[in-house]
Design a protein around this nucleic acid. Structure first.
Length: 823
RNA sequence: GCGGACGUGGCGGAAUUGGCAGACGCGCCGGACUUAGGAUCCGUUGCCUUCGGGCGUGAGGGUUCGACCCCCUCCGUCCGCACCA
């Protein structure tokens, strides 16, 4: 047999797998379905190790399920709209589409060089007309359902990207993509009403038993549900009632000031009657010029200005100063906050800074608080109410409810649920995205592009000027149009959609990718969905995963599909790091997948990446470790070469009774390995331990390298080893299989273990004295607790172990140990 | 500040239900083969040791016959959220 030559055999098998029908998938009611999915990539041009890890994991899952008898959907595609294509256009004058498709071509070649089992016929590219046509169609569906609206708002603006961003896409005050500072701008923008689904998005997290709790907690925090009371405070000078929202209605008697956000509409009204109008306006300008970070970081200084206007606390009739402050967030609650310095640390600090009154409303039970001695607010949710009129004396829980009841009875308050989640800002002032299919008519106003006219195509006569508003507005043929309703003069919306919209439904399109009449067929999407195993990075814990859940629920309500959640199980893989840091060009620690594959082959790359760490954890890249994986594949090759004659001489059915003791033991190792690998792959995604047990098996086979081996056993070993290796290292498995066996290794059934082969007659148990291991003895398997206790007394070294001491008791655990407790 | 995860040999990691800590791999050391070895094969490898054993899973305490695993306190690393009223 020739030497293991990965370059040669990998090319050979990839050609087989790339045949158009090889991995073609169709619905099949006779087998259970399994939808395995890796997050589709942005076509940056080259695969990086993170992709290799992602696809290696997904491929093991998919190939294992295929061999285990499932009808597996395993597709791949590209999240192909996005900024880098546009930047390439600005920098090098290439067309975004040309740049994108060239990158896709390159990356597809690299994916194929990994030997991945994809149904390429289902490939989806979100920048293609036959895809974004349906993205636009879905936008219209949202619009018709009242879930898409345009409004002027203070929004996040990234100068570098020249566009607005959704809240989810601002990380620590910085742009998620380019890391530059984001600031606020007032613009009329399109939003998706994700807040309508806040409650369900939160509640259904409980259904996601196959998701890491980490991700669910992050989404829970992001949605940020809270229950409280809205209170209306009369402001006689303004002739208005001011609404505030609080989660601490029990402290309402302690209100000593009211804080408005600078953006609050009442501020203007106040300025109209206040003699401090100039100062107030100046303060508001100052606050608005601050970044979100400056305004909302818990470290930054709280600032405010008294307006000179008052309102009335409806609970006790107290006159309350109205302030404008920089720390109240306009978008949350009512944009106005009641100030209770005794019960809220921020209010405490604010009151201390500006010398405002403080009224204590809650006393802890164990010690008495005195205002003069306090240096912080009392924020605990327990104690007895004080200074609270008829509520004085009630304990926290009773008073909390009683105050809300009272406010509702009196009509100056209402129980309210609030969310931190904001609506999803989906317009982008960029070119390379799906145009928002809306027309503005001089007479009819906002009009949807009729379905028959979709897609609204991207024009090619645009100018890319960084920083300029919407490149689409520079296109002559795009901008001007006629109104679909009245035929009059109109112009088009020139913003495009957030690319996260494209990626919110691609996994549905995979189930019916060529449909020209609708985004996907309902029966097909229902057959395949939900995704049984979704695999990707933790960076999408909120973003893509929250948006996709939202989309699924909207499309369900619209009757397009019949399930609640898109991804039944989620696996968040760790990063690939080197020298203690994430691989990055600037650190110069990047290892190119192409290089590794050229040098050692895809099988080695896949094996190493699956073996080196558990999938959820970060993986330390090690060149030496890669060599170790390469060495292992050579060992597999070599041992089958050594067994060559035996394997070919053996039969598939034989009587295992005739084996020697050593052979029986080797066969036992084989079947234990089958059990272990099956459980590790199927139940735990513990590919590292699955591979380590395969290594143990190969090591055990090597003990026969100089010995005669029963040909039937050699055959059984080779067959099952290759079947188990097939999902991990498909090329070498296919090659070796073809040398010894008929058919296609990947179309065989994954092996099942022979329970009889695993049974051992004797087992070694541990003898402990006071919990310390002192000896090992062999006993028959299954010896009962009672028999084991009796057996303990007959141990040859029993007297030695217990001499001079008193035996207190004997603990026996069948098949495990005997522990003799002495004193 | 709040929430979460993690902490095991020189390194990556294993120990799935409270029952032999360190599987497997890397590295190191030794041996075989060899003109040669950076190929391959075999073996050793937690620390200490008077060779009986002692110690050992971030630190300290607890529960238990028995704890990497459960409980308490603390330290460290990483991640998420962070004036959301």
């Amino acid at each position: 047999m020739e030497k293991y030559n990965p370059q040669e055999i990998e090319k050979k098998w990839q050609e087989v797998w790339n045949a158009p029908d090889y991995y073609k998938t169709t619905e099949d009611s006779t087998r259970p379905k399994y939808y395995a999915l890796e997050m589709f990539p942005y076509p940056s041009g080259n695969l990086h190790m993170g992709h290799v890890r992602n696809y290696s994991i997904g491929d093991v899952v998919a190939r294992y399920r295929m061999m285990a008898g499932y009808n597996v959907l395993h597709p791949m595609g590209f999240d192909a709209f996005g900024m880098p294509a546009e930047n390439a256009a600005i920098a090098h004058g290439v067309k975004p589409g040309d740049w994108t498709f060239a990158n896709i071509k390159n990356m597809t070649a690299q994916q194929k060089a990994m030997g991945l089992a994809y149904d390429w016929d289902r490939e989806v590219e979100t920048c293609r007309e036959d895809y974004y046509r349906w993205t636009q169609w879905l936008f219209e569906l949202f619009y018709k359902r009242g879930l898409a609206y345009k409004k002027e708002a203070s929004v996040n603006w990234c100068d570098t990207c020249g566009t607005v961003l959704a809240n989810e896409q601002v990380i620590d005050g910085k742009c998620w993509r380019c890391d530059s500072e984001v600031h606020k701008k007032n613009l009329a923008q399109w939003f998706f009403k994700i807040t309508d689904y806040a409650d369900e998005l939160l509640a259904d997290l409980d259904k996601l038993t196959g998701w890491p709790s980490r991700v669910k907690i992050m989404q829970e925090n992001w949605i940020g549900r809270s229950e409280g009371l809205e209170i209306y405070l009369d402001a006689p000078e303004l002739g208005e009632k001011i609404s505030v929202y609080t989660t601490r209605p029990d402290t309402a008697f302690g209100i000593t000031f009211l804080a408005l956000a600078p953006e609050h509409p009442l501020v203007e009204k106040i300025c109209a009657i206040s003699d401090k109008a100039d100062e107030i306006k100046k303060f508001c300008e100052h606050a608005r010029s601050q970044s979100d970070i400056e305004r909302t970081s818990s470290e930054s200084e709280k600032e405010g200005i008294f307006t000179g206007v008052y309102c009335i606390n409806p609970f006790n009739g107290n006159k309350v100063q109205i302030w404008v402050t920089n720390y109240v967030v306009f978008e949350y609650g009512t944009g106005a906050v009641m100030g209770v310095p005794s019960g809220d640390q921020r209010d405490w600090m604010f009151a201390k800074k500006y010398g405002l009154d403080i009224i204590l409303t809650l006393q802890p039970k164990d010690k008495e608080l005195k205002l003069e001695e306090m240096d912080a607010a009392y924020v605990e949710h327990e104690g007895v109410m004080v200074n609270s009129g008829k509520f004085t004396g009630m304990d926290f829980n009773t008073g909390f409810q009683a105050i809300m009841d009272y406010a509702e009875q009196q009509g100056f308050g209402k129980r309210k649920v609030n969310y931190r989640l904001r609506d999803w800002l989906i317009s982008r002032q960029r070119y390379w995205g799906a145009p928002i299919p809306v027309i503005y008519c001089d007479k009819c106003g906002e009009v949807l592009v009729p379905e028959k006219d979709l897609p609204v195509l991207l024009p090619d006569d645009v100018e890319f000027k960084q920083g300029a508003l919407s490149p689409l507005s520079t296109s002559k043929k795009f901008n001007e149009c006629t109104c679909p309703k009245c035929g009059g003069h109109a112009h088009r919306e020139t913003d495009t959609m957030d690319t996260f919209i494209c990626s919110s439904w691609y996994y549905m399109r995979y189930t019916d990718p060529h449909n020209e009449a609708k985004p996907f067929d309902r029966d097909k999407v229902n057959y395949w969905s939900p995704v049984d195993q979704y695999i990707g990075g933790i960076e999408h814990a909120i973003l893509h995963l929250l948006y996709s859940r939202f989309f699924t629920k909207v499309l369900r309500d619209a009757g397009l599909l019949d399930y609640d959640e898109p991804f039944a199980n989620l696996l968040t893989q760790g990063m690939v790091i080197k020298d203690g840091a994430k691989m990055s060009k600037s650190l110069g620690n990047v290892v190119s997948p192409e290089e590794i594959i050229n040098k050692y082959g895809a099988d080695t790359a896949r094996l190493f990446i699956l073996f080196a760490a558990p999938v959820e954890r970060d993986l330390d890249w090690s060149d030496k470790g890669v060599q170790g994986s390469y060495r292992f594949l050579n060992r597999v090759w070599r041992i089958l070469e050594i067994f060559d004659d035996a394997i070919k001489a053996g039969n598939d059915t034989y009587d295992a009774q005739i084996l020697t003791a050593e052979e029986i033991s080797l066969r036992r190792t084989l079947h234990k390995t089958i059990k272990k690998v099956t459980e590790d792959v199927r139940d735990r995604f513990a590919f590292n331990t699955a591979i380590s047990s395969l290594m143990e098996l190969v090591n055990a086979m090597h003990t026969f390298q100089d010995k005669k081996i029963n040909p039937n056993l050699a055959r059984e070993l080779a067959k099952n080893l290759l079947l188990m290796l097939a999902p991990f290292v498909p090329h070498i498995s296919a090659e070796l299989w073809s040398k010894f066996f008929m058919g296609d290794v990947h179309k065989q059934n994954f092996p099942t273990f022979d329970a009889a082969a695993i049974v051992e007659e004797e087992i070694e148990i541990v003898i402990q004295i006071n919990g310390k291991v002192r000896d090992h003895v062999k006993v028959p398997v299954g010896l009962s607790k009672a028999d084991l206790e009796k057996f303990a007394l007959t141990l040859p070294r029993f007297d030695e172990f217990t001499s001079g001491k008193k035996v207190i008791k004997i603990i026996a655990v069948p098949n495990k140990l005997i522990n003799i407790v002495v004193k």
